[in-house]
């Protein structure tokens, strides 16, 4: 009796002791992600379709979708995007493109993608609209004459459609002369550098609804130094000008872009990026933007103080 009791107790314990596997994978649904950002200043548009996958741990490769039928439909206009392959960083990327679709300001644009298995992805947006855009100061210099500690760029936008947001970029145009061969380069100026483990990491402007951007002069100085970092032959470098661009995004693109930057730059315990999408039937983003830009000149003596040459373009 005692032996039987011990035997059955051991049997029960052996079952209770089993390590239960954790099945952390939910029910997989085949789905696709569609990415398309309309440049409303151009007739060249591209789109991409990718398939979701479910693999153990983190997948090594996500499948691109070929042979999808993708249309862009605008005001009195419908254009099918052609399928092509591009090699980017030794990887083949399937891109759908057209060079014949320029939407009108403020017009509605629809994208519709039919996947070979019959699934439809679609979305409709309104191209950014405004009656007037201008920079508050059109003749800026670096360093700024009024406040040499910073560069302030402001702009005004009138009668803009709802939900518009801005993304800015300040770039330095320069050339490098190596052994008589001159090459053109562009380097973006961050709003901040942070030091992490002896590495200097740039932090670029994020999407905002405020109509100005400020760059500290010290950061511009640091970026100019970065141009020739480690090269003692400073005179090989010729600084030409700076270009300030404002990308005016409609709300969907603004939300998508802002959510990515916000997650990247936020100090949070959040583990995963939020999933922001405006694609019906799938994931991804369909958005549009227009761009306005202005040239900012450098003060020649300032450029030469770095050892560079200066040539106004």
């Amino acid at each position: 009796m005692i032996r039987k009791s011990i035997f059955f107790t051991l049997i029960i314990f052996s079952f209770l002791a089993c390590e239960e596997e954790i099945n952390y994978q939910g029910e997989f649904e085949e789905n696709y992600a569609l990415f398309c950002v309309i440049n409303a200043d151009s007739s060249k548009q591209t789109a991409m379709v990718k398939k979701k996958t479910l693999v153990i741990k983190v997948p090594k490769k996500i499948i691109m979708c070929k042979d999808a039928i993708i249309y862009l439909n605008g005001k009195n206009k419908s254009e099918q995007l052609k399928d092509t392959s591009l090699i980017n960083n030794n990887q083949v990327t399937e891109i759908y493109y057209t060079d014949n679709f320029k939407p009108a300001n403020g017009s509605k644009v629809e994208i519709r993608a039919e996947i070979p298995n019959g699934k439809i992805l679609s979305s409709t947006i309104a191209v950014p609209y405004f009656t007037l855009f201008f920079f508050e100061e059109s003749n800026l210099f670096i360093p700024d004459y009024d406040d040499p500690s910073r560069l302030f760029v402001g702009w005004s936008l009138h009668d803009g459609s709802d939900g518009l947001a801005f993304l800015t970029r300040l770039s330095i145009n320069y050339t490098v002369n190596m052994n008589g061969v001159e090459t053109k380069h562009i380097l973006a100026v961050p709003v901040e550098y942070i030091i992490q483990n002896d590495n200097k990491l740039p932090v670029y402007p994020q999407a905002t609804r405020t109509a100005f951007q400020i760059y500290r002069q010290s950061i511009i100085d640091e970026t100019l130094n970065e141009i020739s970092a480690g090269d003692t032959s400073k005179s090989s470098y010729t600084i030409q000008s700076a270009n300030f661009e404002v990308f005016i995004m409609e709300q969907n693109l603004a939300n998508y872009s802002a959510s990515i930057e916000s997650f990247k730059n936020s100090f949070s315990v959040k583990v995963y990026e939020p999933v922001i999408t405006n694609i019906d039937g799938g994931l991804g983003v369909f958005g549009a933007y227009v761009k306005r830009s202005m040239k900012i000149n450098f003060e020649p003596s300032y450029v030469r103080s770095f050892g560079y040459k200066y040539k106004k373009d």
């Binding site: 994978q25 996958t53 693999v55 872009s257």
Partner: peptide
């Protein structure tokens, strides 16, 4: 706890 259903490649806009 929350199950993971799939993975997808999310496009990030580089500079």
């Amino acid at each position: 706890f929350t199950l993971v259903t799939s993975y997808y490649e999310k496009l990030h806009f580089d500079n």
